[in-house]
Structures are given as structure tokens and as C-alpha cells.
Amino acid sequence: MTADNPNTTSPHHPLHILARKNVLAGLMFIAIAALGLWVSRDYPIGTALRMGTGYVPRLLCWILMGLGAAILVQGLREKDAPPERTSWRQIMPIVVVTTSLIAFALAIEQLGFVLAILLLVGIGAIAARDIKIWELLLAALVLIALSYAIFILGLGLTIPVWPVW
């Protein structure tokens, strides 16, 4: 998913070929398989009778590598496949959603349930372009009340509600 300049000429431009769905998918599978093979390089393989830790994982990585190569070749042969384009509008939600979850994870045990929800909702709302501030506050309040009712009153989970000093 490269962010190409949309004006760069022909669909056979190397970067355009690289940005085809199937080319990217093939490369992704090859990369994952290579990573898997590298991580499992020291796992004992054993024999078919007494399979070691590495037998099945390495076998699967090689199969994945082959499939990735086949998908890559398929992608290279599709002459008129359009390249993938990615704009900031598409990257932004990924960053926002991930950040809000990380903030929640870091906050939940120290700052407690209420503040963690406020953080998640506050950061997450950046991805909604047209949310109004009173809407946001209302949504946060409703969500805090609802989650409190379900998870703490209903299921009796022991999550700290307020900051732990």
C-alpha cells in the first residue's frame, strides 16, 4: 500500500505494479513465511515418527512461502489491475484506533476504568470527523454507565474503577 502520486504515468510503472493487490498480498505472505522460518530456525525438527517442535511450523512456513510466490506471480501477470492507493484519510483511522486501544491498555490498571474509557472514547472520536463536543461527552457518560452496569454490577468483575494511588 504505497502512497503513490496518482499522476505517475502508465500502469506498468514499477511502483504501480508493486502496489497491485495481489502483488502486495503475495509479498506479505512471503515475508510472514520468511519471518516464521527465521524465528523457528533453531526449533528441533525431529522425524515424522517423533515430530519435534519445529516439524509442523516449518512445514507450514514453506507451504505459505510457496503460496505467497504463486499469488505474487498471479499479481505480476494481471496487466490491468489497478494499483492500491492510500491517502491520509485512510491511514488516520488506523493510527487513531490503535492509539486509543494502547491508551486504554496502559490506563486500565493504574488510572482505573472510568479514566480509561474517557481516554479511549476521547482519542477514538478523532476518527469521527463531525462529532460535536456535547455528543462526545454524552456518549462517554452513557458508555461509562453502561459498561459499569454490565461488567462491574452485572458480572462482578474486579476492575479498578478509580485511579489506584
Partner: peptide, 12 residues
């Protein structure tokens, strides 16, 4: 915009 915030929170 309300729906996704709730989904995200329930996931977390």
C-alpha cells in the same frame, strides 16, 4: 460515529 465508539470500547 456513536456505534464505532461503543464497539471499540466493548472490544477493549
Amino acid at each position: 460515529r456513536f456505534l464505532y465508539l461503543s464497539i471499540l470500547l466493548f472490544c477493549a
